[in-house]
Design a protein around this nucleic acid. Structure first.
Length: 563
RNA sequence: GCCCUUGUAGCUCAGUGGAUAGAGCACUGGACUCCGGAUCCAGGUGCGCAGGUUCGAUUCCUGCCAAGGGUACCA
């Protein structure tokens, strides 16, 4: 278990032990009170390395002033344990906090800890033995991915990385919506544009796909088949256009995602659900379990029995399945594959799916908590002061590829990861382009390049660069302290991301880490310092380097040697 | 109407019960004969409104106001 946990546990025990006599004196059962002992890290450095609020939490029950209780606790401190936990001193402060100050050797201990854990420093055992599936993007293959897909894509990808880093066995999966009405519409749209290209007058449907890419696909088909298309019966021509367009667009989607640094373990086809009768089977399973009924010629799933606000149609009155029916089958398949946790990353426009999908999970007899649906809020696109309209149907949209080309993969990923998933986010294209040199991601990467440059210079001067645990750290003083404190926090940040399924804690932390390093770098000469202090500082840089690399790897952002 | 999410500095956003609420951008002034100036240091007005729970609320609960999204036998 990481350094920080160990320290916290030790301190907790010390406080608990000191609390017992206070409770006994007043004849209070210690059990529940001891459980309330928690240690936090104060925001302000002057408030110690750790702080405990137990005196305030117990004030009412003990019928005493918090500060008095705190003083009593401090008086009871067992000397040997305190020594062992490296406690330097304790103070009662503010309304009744017990502030704990540790010996500086404790803080320096983070470097050997990093040396010991290496590329797994920051990880925790929480995911060990857990199988997790993360489904994200899952766009219709009816057009290129637009900028709105990017956010969910990056969040889903990094979420998977975080889970993996913490020991989970993760499958990243893309669900291809390649069946149904939207695909028919795609085929028809392409075919009509094709006719138009050949000079025919057409009546383009209002709900058809409008983008220029549809015409391009039509031209490609013409180039490939020419008049040979007419050898097919009219009905088949649309299908042919549909399949051609589908393959092309799906290929483009794969490429675009690759361009954003995203690789899926599995591409799951909606059609396969029909081909393998999985939709039929899933629906009949619901039927056997008596969760279906017929009304108005349609078949309904009684999802309201599991908390959904209304029941949902699974088979339309024309006999065809709804999209929801296929999605039910897909999720049943996921459940059967034995995942401990199934995560869907969806856009805010799909939030209505949460209740109905969880209802399905429960109807199949699984714990509804097995499915976690993460809603990523909408991105509003701007060009300076002007809002960019986003309509896939109208064909007016900025693609994911455009964004990556304009700002670069690293910046694009970092940008999407900076905000919490539930925040409504503004994305200003002009700003993203203009600021590419000052984009916050460069701040982190520059820190990395600087470290690499230091190591290189050291080599040139025949200075041995110690690993984080390979130097005498005693020379480190107040100037190095803030950086050490940031290194200590990393495992907590990872855990926070893991627990909340929110990658953004990591980018916020990354900024803090880079900031602490840059400040240290400006304040402390390293290679030009006296050998003893030089080696200690190099060990600190080694440790910082390790943490930064671990972080960037999770984020899927490159760590350049030079910029 | 109902449901979900969000209202924090001029702007974009962190802060999921603690002490003095933070960062970036923008603005102003400083810092290297030296390891990379894509850096560092300094400068500040703010938790939408009203109640409630709590020793203690920006954080949890309720109501109101505002913004975005959803509310199909579309996907």
């Amino acid at each position: 278990m990481p350094f920080l946990h160990e320290t916290r546990n030790k301190l907790k025990q010390v406080i608990q032990k000191s609390l017992i006599p206070v409770l006994e004196k007043r004849e209070i059962e210690p059990g529940p009170a001891l459980d309330k002992v928690k240690l936090e890290e104060p925001k302000h450095r002057e408030h110690g390395d750790f702080a405990c609020n137990i005196a305030m939490a117990m004030a009412r029950e003990l019928k005493a002033a918090p500060r008095e209780i705190a003083l009593e606790i401090i008086d009871n401190l067992p000397p040997r344990e305190a020594e062992e936990a490296m406690i330097d001193r304790l103070e009662v402060a503010g309304p009744g906090f017990i502030n704990i100050y540790l010996d500086k050797r404790w803080l320096q201990g983070v470097l050997p800890a990093i040396a010991g854990e290496k590329e797994s420093y920051g990880s925790n055992g929480k995911g060990a033995g857990k199988k997790v599936q993360v489904e994200f993007v899952s766009a219709n293959p009816t057009g290129p991915l637009h900028v709105g897909h990017s956010r969910g894509a990056v969040v889903g990808d990094v979420l998977g990385n975080v889970l993996e880093f913490c020991g989970c066995d993760v499958d990243k999966e893309f669900y291809i919506n390649n069946a149904g009405h939207q695909m028919e519409l795609l085929g028809r749209s392409i075919y009509l544009r094709l006719l138009e290209e050949r000079g025919e007058k057409i009546d383009f449907p209002e709900d058809g796909y409008q983008g220029e890419y549809i015409r391009e696909l039509a031209r490609k088909i013409l180039a490939k088949y020419g008049d040979g298309l007419d050898l097919h019966p009219p009905r088949e021509r649309e299908a042919l256009c549909r399949e051609f367009g589908y393959q092309e667009l799906l290929g483009g989607i794969r490429d675009d995602l690759k361009g954003l640094g995203i690789k899926f373990d599995r591409w799951f086809s909606e059609r396969s659900l029909y081909e393998n009768k999985m939709v039929e089977k899933a629906i009949s399973l619901l039927k056997r379990r008596k969760f279906l009924y017929e009304e108005d010629g349609a078949t309904w799933f009684a999802s309201s029995r599991f908390g959904d606000e209304k029941d949902r149609v699974v088979i339309k009155s024309d006999g065809s399945y709804t999209y929801f029916a296929a999605d039910i089958a897909y999720h049943l398949d996921k459940l059967k594959r034995g995942y401990d946790l199934v995560i869907d990353v969806l856009g805010a426009d799909h939030h209505g799916h949460i209740a109905r999908m969880k209802a399905a999970v429960e109807a199949f007899g699984y714990d509804r908590e097995t499915l976690e649906i993460l809603i990523v809020q909408i991105v509003t696109l701007w060009r300076g002061e002007e809002k960019v309209p986003m309509s896939k149907r109208a064909g007016e949209f900025v693609t994911m590829r455009d964004v990556v080309e304009e700002v670069g993969v690293d910046a694009a990923r970092y940008f999407y990861l900076m905000r919490s998933p539930e925040s409504h986010m503004d994305f200003d294209l002009e700003l993203a382009r203009e600021q590419s040199a000052k984009n916050p991601v460069y701040y982190l990467q520059y820190a990395h390049a600087r470290m690499m440059s230091l190591f290189k210079k050291a080599e040139e001067r025949e200075i041995v660069v110690p690993g984080p645990g390979d130097a005498d750290l005693a020379p480190l003083g107040d100037e190095e302290e803030p950086l050490l404190r940031v290194l200590v926090r990393f495992p907590d940040i990872v855990e926070e991301s893991y627990d909340n399924l929110s990658p953004h804690f990591l980018t916020v932390y990354g900024h803090d880490l880079a900031q602490a390093f840059h400040a240290f770098y400006n304040k402390c000469p390293i290679l030009t310092a006296e050998p003893e202090i030089r080696q200690a500082r190099l060990a600190l840089v080694s440790g910082t380097h390790r943490v930064l690399r671990n972080l960037l790897k999770i984020l899927g952002i490159s760590a350049p040697d030079q910029m």
